[in-house]
Nucleic acid binder design. Structure first.
Lengths: 169, 169
DNA sequence: CATATTTAGTTCAAGCATAAAATATATTCA
DNA sequence: TGAATATATTTTATGCTTGAACTAAATATG
């Protein structure tokens, strides 16, 4: 009697190389697109605004919350560690772009928000940033853009399923 | 009475090139897929092989060149700076996975290649890595995979044109 | 109430990554 | 030949990022 589990494994192994190789190619291509674009954005943020991408990202989050955000919420939204946020905020405060405010009702918590200077600065950067993306994506037809939006959404769901599953352990 | 939120949205949209918002969404989605996948790969490389992604990438390059690579070639292929490679190779040499060899015909140059231990180690990791990608991409139909390969190729060409142009300056 | 646990944030050590300056060797050409 | 230039790599300073250990405050529970 054949063990169905063994059959499954054999089926997996047999079919794996073909599809697996394409998926590997896809992953490498996705990664190289992502790296290419983000390197260019980093370069332009640095030369034109003397700011780093992580600081820009923090400011983008804060710009959407005029009343400020808890440090913990910020690190969850940006999917980075608390310690990372501490350092980023330290530097943004030094530059006068962000202020820290201690919550009197919960003395463990700190809320941060953009200063007026930070808001002005972010608006300039955001507008340039959007134009850069538009420039870099100009070679894609509207059809490709919506196709990519759709396919990447499917990819994100596929990956999330796996990541959440291995997170549970 | 005008809703202030609606005013904000209108302000944002005003004067923006058509399609710019979709492209921004696409960029953020692409970035989040890329980050999600690479974070999971980093996590698994660390917990299962006690290795970092940059070291894995170096080993992957060297595995394709049994006769070794110049440090400069390595940094060009990986699109990172020379200084970065120096440090990565230092650590890989310390671990016995890579060896440095000075070229006697050009005493400026250093060639590096995998040791036997490095080759064995890489083969194990590469096979696991391929399976992980297969697992994460399992939710995508073959049609989506080939569509993505095609669309991302178009994106890469579009971005490259811009990056090369601004590089010339 | 007192103790245990959870939550919020910071600190620390290690590694990755960059740009710019430095070092050493090789090549060009006046 | 010898000075200028180019090439190969390392060093340095700075910043991002993580995971783990830590402090302090709030909350839960016996």
């Amino acid at each position: 009697m054949t063990d169905p589990l063994v059959e499954d494994v054999e089926a997996l192994v047999r079919d794996e190389p073909a599809g697996s190789k394409m998926e590997l190619r896809l992953w490498l291509r996705l990664l190289s697109c992502s790296n290419l674009i983000s390197a260019e954005i980093r370069r332009r943020l640095r030369t034109e605004f003397d700011v780093t991408l992580p600081r820009f990202d923090v400011m983008a989050q804060l710009h959407r919350e005029p009343n400020g955000l808890r440090l913990g919420d910020l690190s969850r939204r940006m999917m980075v560690t608390n310690g990372n946020i501490t350092g980023l905020i330290d530097r943004l405060v030094e530059e006068g772009l962000v202020i820290r405010e201690t919550d009197p009702s919960d003395r463990r918590a700190t809320t941060v928000r953009l200063t007026r200077a930070g808001t002005t600065m972010f608006r300039m950067m955001a507008s340039a940033h959007e134009a850069w993306i538009h420039e870099m994506f100009a070679g894609l037809s509207a059809r490709r853009v919506s196709e990519l939006l759709d396919d990447l959404d499917a990819l994100k769901r596929s990956v999330s399923r796996v990541v959440l599953a291995s997170d549970e352990k």
